[in-house]
Design a protein around this nucleic acid. Structure first.
Lengths: 345, 345
DNA sequence: ACTTGTTACTAAAACGATTGCGTAGAAATA
DNA sequence: TATTTCTACGCAATCGTTTTAGTAACAAGT
């Protein structure tokens, strides 16, 4: 099947012109007379000619496409980030290739290799929860592949980064729970190796410390796969709910963990917020309609995507090796709904 | 920035071999001695050589990538379809380029043009709600671009298609409402021009007819943009709830319409199902956790994506023009939850 | 000694578009 | 008329890889 067979050569043959004349005519070169240009353009349109982008890429040395690596697009946060990325990329004539790691390190490596072997001009990446190191990216970075990290970033590679103010988001959420009268506030979170976990954990701890509330370490539960498997959260909840100093509130990170927590609490007939209050990081548009309406820390997903893409494009377009890098931090917003409202028992 | 500069020519120079020898050695050709192969491979690895995929594409005449057009990946149904697509595509060495129409016809045309001008080997497309005709696809189809439709299909182009059993899904949902004792069953749906609307509408009507229930036409509300804007559903609900023969149940199609309906009914303090029962098409994983838990028609999104991709790849790989086309219909599943359970008032 | 075969390689032509350089012919200038 | 300057186009190289069509060098068969 050879789709789109018509080439610049076919036009040249049809009009008895040289290939270069046709090319130049189509690119509106001053070297070509108006008459010939008109002739060529008319012929091109009539034959529905489209320049072969692969040939153009080969000649020009770029592919006009950027690669994206996220954990999963089923997560609304990433879907929103991707929308932001596309909005900027398309405007600049770049298209995007989206890949998903499903939190797996292996898949992350495979996707990155696949993307680079498909020739991308730059990479936007949010690390997988299972990623232990970034050696697979360091080589590429050293070779000069422009990359920008967002959401889950690494300190081991010096480049542009875009993140939410995870510390403050967690601080605000925890403080809100404290202000609402909760004292035994547990935390279910992603693995401790990824950046968002550390930052949010720090915010959580700081809010508790600032309020002078002592919280035992076992109130902090890590989900090895970031909540990919329901059992991770089941285990955490079973543990927490069976403590003799059972928490009266839970602060969760990540969409998946948050929504699974509310699902499981409902299933276990644990009343929210009467038995346990809940505040979680999530970008789902359904927070209002959940049972109960979910208090949530919302991130500016779309804007994160936009900013990261702008930075990536600036790297791609830069004629000089860039050495000054920036980490942009976007604010989060706490939406208070019923799941964290203190009720009289 | 020239990333990944080392080419087959550099290796040839370094080893004092010809370019073709190096190429053949790397491709493990029988024409090259083991000694030379070893030499070349060692040199390639040492220099971290990667074949330039653009040059390969140009030579081989394919890009090993397929284009996807959906309305929005924020819709979990499409996210799941895409996961299915990727699972098959990546296994076969293809990567995917995802584009979104946000239900706009203009964007659909732009995306399709963009994809084809980026050289894709095939196209997977679910039509936008606003798409009035498929002229923009007919040309491409005529030129031989392999394409497979899924979800929202057209009769005007003869190719493979993969859809859910929309008729039966709607029939089952409506029948369930009837069986639960509801009689005045309204329908909020997408614009009448797209296939899923027609099919689901037919199922809805058939179930009512089979039960001998007369339903006025004004019980059927169309959302011009498939529920993209909240006002579309607000208008529909305002209209329905102010009727003197106000419906006692609503059947909604599409994720967006369904979740927005439950949001608005909650906001309007209309009790579900006491005042109005609700069954909707949705693939959200949160149906269980909504307030109230949402009865829903669930589609096999992942499987739709898989099947569509298998069919597309068979078209791409076919040496002969394919003339026999197939429409695969996958079953839907009705999950009964509280939103459609008859309660005593 | 002469054909025939095999091995292990190279030269060159693709793929399609772009571009620097060259040039025929016309027009302008000396 | 001779020379220079334009105009409008063509030639050929280029991007990096693959592939076809060779071809030396040597061995084996007749």
């Amino acid at each position: 099947m050879n789709f789109n067979a018509i080439t610049i050569r076919d036009i040249a043959k049809e009009l008895n012109l040289s290939v270069s004349t046709v090319s130049k005519a189509l690119r509106d070169s001053y070297e070509i007379s108006e008459k010939t240009k008109k002739l060529v353009i008319e012929c091109a349109q009539r034959n529905n000619y489209r320049p072969n982008p692969i040939a153009q890429s080969l000649k020009q040395g770029n592919s006009k496409s950027i690669g994206i690596v996220v954990s999963t697009i089923e997560n609304q946060f990433f879907a929103q980030v991707i929308n932001g990325i596309e909005s900027v990329a398309h405007k600049e004539g770049y298209n995007v290739i989206i890949t998903q790691t499903h939190e797996s390190y292996d898949l992350e490596v495979k996707n990155v290799n696949h993307l680079t072997s498909r020739s991308i001009d730059g990479l936007l990446i949010s690390l997988s929860t299972e990623t232990p190191d970034v050696e697979h990216l360091k080589t590429l970075h050293a070779q000069g592949l422009p990359m920008v990290f967002f959401d889950r970033v690494t300190e081991d590679i010096n480049t542009h980064k875009v993140i939410s103010d995870n510390y403050k988001g967690a601080y605000d959420a925890t403080k809100h729970l404290i202000d609402s009268g909760f004292r035994r506030i547990a935390h279910i979170t992603s693995p401790p190796n990824i950046s968002i976990t550390k930052e949010r954990l720090a915010g959580y701890k700081a809010a508790l410390a600032d309020a002078g509330i002592f919280t035992p370490d076992y109130y902090i539960c890590y989900c090895p796969h970031g909540g990919r498997d329901i059992s991770e959260i089941e285990n955490a909840l079973n543990f927490l709910l069976n403590l003799k100093d059972k928490p009266d509130a839970i602060f969760t990170t990540s969409d998946r963990i948050t929504t699974t927590t509310i699902f499981l609490l409902n299933k276990l007939k644990v009343a929210i917020p009467a038995d346990v209050a809940l505040v979680g990081y999530t970008n789902t548009t359904l927070a209002d309609v959940l049972n109960p309406p979910l208090s949530s820390v919302h991130q500016q997903g779309f804007e994160i995507g936009q900013k990261a893409t702008e930075m990536l494009l600036s790297l791609i377009k830069s004629k000089w090796p860039v050495t000054e890098f920036e980490t942009v931090v976007l604010p989060t917003h706490l939406f208070i709904r019923e799941s964290s409202t203190k009720t009289k028992k």
